[in-house]
Design a protein around this nucleic acid. Structure first.
Lengths: 129, 129
DNA sequence: ACATATATAATAACAATTACTATTATTCAT
DNA sequence: ATGAATAATAGTAATTGTTATTATATATGT
């Protein structure tokens, strides 16, 4: 696979991810794209999601609940998993890259970065209680 | 399943995890336990790993490479995933719970905790380069 | 418009995990 | 110790999430 050729399906996936904050799974993406492309194949969805993630156009989240989810927002930000409804929210916050140094203090290897998930109760679920 | 009954298999799994720092996958646990219990079933391994994790006797790590790994060390500590060899190491370090506050500043929900994975090059791989 | 290469849909294959079931082991009361 | 009650097991089948295959369709450069 040398150079990308345009495809409506891939474009639709990118477009869909750019306009949702839902952090959908591959299957959810599939369901939603089918509204416009009724016979898109699930394989196509998987292939394009992975392709886009490799190229840095989207982010593949290895969620703490075990599922893989996708995020069209590639600006650095953190994620929050609601223990109640299971949804993933974005968190805009100042950098916490200093924790790499803290970790490095007790470790002989080279720490290049970290992945952090916060969890708790999301705003929506707090209201409904 | 009302109350736990003793089983040698479960005990062996707990014992094995208590004495390794390998952060094995379910399949690796299976392989190792078979040395002593040649016809333990893979289902038994999965069932007990999840049971023990639910009861807080071991920890189930949802690793960044997508795999689930298990850790017999339940004392609070962090984990490091080597990008080179793929192994997971423990990191003993001071608490970074203050990042929960930082995250909370930009978020309306309730932040109860976080899960962090560090990544980079482990000590072993640094030597062999 | 044509040649070449990539992408697709549909399906099959695959790996990781869970569910099922008949049998075995543990527990507890006698 | 014996036996009844129940949880755990081994072995297998089923399910799920994901990737590979292949013939056809689509996009790109000349």
């Amino acid at each position: 696979m040398a150079v990308n050729k345009y495809s409506r399906q891939r474009e639709a996936i990118k477009e869909y991810l750019a306009h949702t904050k839902e952090h959908p799974t591959a299957d959810t993406v599939y369901m939603n794209i089918r509204a416009t492309y009724p016979n898109i194949s699930l394989g196509t969805v998987y292939r394009n999601l992975n392709l886009l993630a490799e190229q840095g156009e989207i982010i593949k989240l290895n969620c703490q609940d075990g599922s893989d989810r996708f995020d069209g927002n590639v600006k650095p930000h953190y994620h929050f998993l609601c223990n109640n409804c299971g949804r993933v929210h974005d968190i805009e916050m100042e950098s916490i890259d200093h924790i790499n140094k803290i970790a490095g203090a007790g470790f002989d290897g080279k720490i290049e970065g970290h992945v952090t998930f916060f969890y708790g109760v999301c705003p929506d679920c707090m209201r409904n209680e």
